[in-house]
Simulated assay, not measured.
Amino acid sequence: MTEKEIRILWEKELAFFGVVTASLSHEINNVVAIVGELTGLLDDLLSASEQGRPLNSEKLKGLSSRLSKQVDKGKIIIKRLNRFAHSVDDPVKQVNLGELLFLISAIAERFAFLKGICIKTEFDSADSVTVETDPFALQQAVFTCIQLALSTAGSNAVINIGLKPEASEIRIFVAGAPVADAADINEKREVLSILMKELGGRFEIKPAHNTEHSIALFIPRSLAGGRGRITP
């Protein structure tokens, strides 16, 4: 890998980490804001009760249920953030691809929602496979593929993400959106090329009429020579 590629990779890794953590913290902030509103309504009910009004048990139950749902949602988001943050712990490790794809797909859902696009996974995590790879770099590669698809998909589009074991490698695919040529898209292709070099794999971008996939990553079952994340 050239010095320029190492510099680009390092910059994009930091940018990727920042984008994901900012998005997840925004989701957590939304949960906190809703919890604040609900506790305010709860205070209003209690205040009215102290002034002699009968306590409305149905409203109380409704507020309690809504608070519980937000707490559960917050726990899920924090768990995602925790799992993502710990993906940088080991440059190379055994990774369950199904769990990794579910995580990065869930993280990307907010970006898709803002564009009116739906992300679906086309596999069962129980049927997934385990590979020895760099989990952070692979997440970044999959996220870059999703960004490429989101950049050209129209509103109400559905982007499908799946995986398929093949002879000596695993194919991770993103389908449902054509990938056109543009400066930003070509930049992401360059980043993807560098990432796949680090992961010991390759990628393909197919024309819009391809029914199998728009973008595919081909990941080896084991990262040869213990290669992994490079730091400048």
Rank of each mutant, 00 (worst) to 15 (best):
M1D: 00
E3R: 07
E3K: 12
E3F: 06
K4W: 01
K4F: 06
K4H: 06
K4C: 03
I6E: 03
I8H: 03
E11N: 11
E13I: 02
A15L: 14
F16L: 05
F17E: 01
V19N: 07
T21R: 06
T21W: 03
T21V: 07
A22K: 13
E27I: 05
V32E: 04
A33Q: 09
G36V: 11
G40T: 13
G40F: 05
L41T: 11
L41G: 09
D43Q: 09
L45K: 11
E50N: 11
Q51D: 08
R53A: 14
R53K: 13
N56I: 13
S57A: 14
S57W: 14
E58C: 04
E58M: 08
K61P: 03
L63E: 03
L63V: 05
L63W: 02
S64N: 12
S65P: 10
S65I: 12
K69D: 11
Q70V: 06
V71I: 14
V71W: 01
V71C: 03
G74R: 14
I76P: 01
I78G: 02
K79H: 09
L81P: 05
N82I: 09
N82Q: 12
N82C: 08
N82K: 12
R83S: 08
R83L: 10
F84D: 01
F84C: 02
A85I: 09
H86S: 07
S87N: 07
V92F: 05
N96A: 14
L97G: 01
G98W: 11
G98F: 05
G98H: 04
I104H: 02
I104E: 06
I104L: 11
I107C: 00
A108H: 07
A108T: 07
F111V: 03
A112I: 09
F113Q: 09
D124K: 15
A126T: 15
V129Y: 03
V129T: 14
V129P: 00
T130Q: 05
A137R: 05
L138N: 01
Q139I: 01
Q140N: 08
Q140M: 15
T144I: 03
C145A: 14
C145H: 04
Q147M: 13
Q147E: 08
A149R: 03
L150E: 07
S151I: 08
A153T: 10
A157N: 15
V158N: 04
I159F: 02
I159P: 00
P165F: 03
E166I: 11
E169Y: 15
I170D: 01
A175N: 07
A175I: 00
A180N: 04
A182Q: 04
A182C: 05
K188I: 05
R189G: 10
V191H: 07
L192H: 03
S193P: 00
E198R: 00
L199Y: 02
G201Q: 07
R202G: 10
R202M: 13
F203C: 10
K206S: 15
P207K: 15
A208M: 12
E212V: 07
E212Y: 02
H213P: 05
F218L: 11
R221A: 12
R221H: 07
S222D: 13
G225S: 13
G225T: 08
R227T: 02
I230T: 02
P232K: 00
